[in-house]
Computed example of a mutant assay.
Amino acid sequence: MENNTRINLINSSFDEIYKKGYQGASLTTILKNAKVHKGSMYHFFANKKELALVSIKEKIYERFSQRYSAILQLESNYLEAFIKSIKDVKQRDFNLGCPIATVIQEMSNLDDDFKILMKEIYQTFRKNINNILDKAVEKNEMKQCDTAKLALYIVSTLEGAILSAKATGNVKDYIDVIDILSSYILSFRL
């Protein structure tokens, strides 16, 4: 039961912050949606900020794990699996945008704890993609290249594509950018 309470708080907090931003997130709404009293929250977290930081970290790393760990466990076809993953529009919310970018934009200049956490998350995002590219090079599926720079380019393009789709309300903007990005990535294939 105690673990369920913590999970409910994490999920509710992340959802509220993702939809309204940290500053717009209501602790009352978080607790109501988690079906938890304030005293129960304080059993796990010192305050709203700690709850927010933990929920952002856990939920975003959970997404990374679902998206990228499975690709790294493969024996081959890393580029194809990665491209399939980025083309899957069901994995993204184009109305709300990327949760990483959303929190970075809102909080990195306002709070050092958020800035540190979001830098760590962003670097992990890049590293996950870099690891996939390194695996593809290692297995002779792609040419030797500066995989760190290519990972930076891919992350930047993904973030821009998500922002474009959010700004226009048109998922096709994301799809069009990803089609070009996919062709570019595949140009490194051996």
Rank of each mutant, 00 (worst) to 15 (best):
P99M: 12
D173F: 02
I83C: 12
I129F: 05
S164A: 06
N47W: 12
S156H: 10
N140P: 07
G97S: 05
L9H: 01
S156D: 13
L190I: 08
Q144C: 13
F125W: 08
Y61C: 07
L163H: 00
E75M: 06
F44I: 05
D146I: 10
I175Y: 02
K48I: 01
D176R: 14
E120D: 15
K48C: 01
I129W: 03
L110Q: 14
F188Y: 14
K139S: 03
Y61W: 12
F188I: 05
G169N: 03
S12I: 04
N170I: 01
Y174K: 00
D88H: 09
T29Q: 14
H43V: 15
L96C: 04
F94T: 00
Y184K: 08
I10A: 01
K19H: 07
N8R: 14
S40H: 11
K115C: 14
A70C: 10
N128V: 03
I121V: 14
R63T: 13
E80A: 09
I121G: 04
K166C: 00
N170Y: 02
F64W: 10
Q144G: 12
S182L: 01
S182G: 02
T147F: 14
A25F: 04
I17E: 00
A46K: 15
S65L: 08
K135N: 04
E62M: 10
G21F: 03
L9I: 03
L152P: 06
S65I: 05
Q73W: 12
I175A: 05
S156E: 11
Q23R: 06
A34M: 15
M118Y: 08
P99W: 11
K84S: 15
L96N: 01
Y174N: 02
T168V: 02
K87H: 09
L31R: 09
E58L: 13
N130C: 10
I60G: 02
V177T: 01
M1L: 10
V103L: 13
K38A: 04
F64I: 02
S85T: 15
Y22C: 06
L158V: 11
L190W: 06
E62R: 09
V36K: 13
T168E: 00
F94V: 00
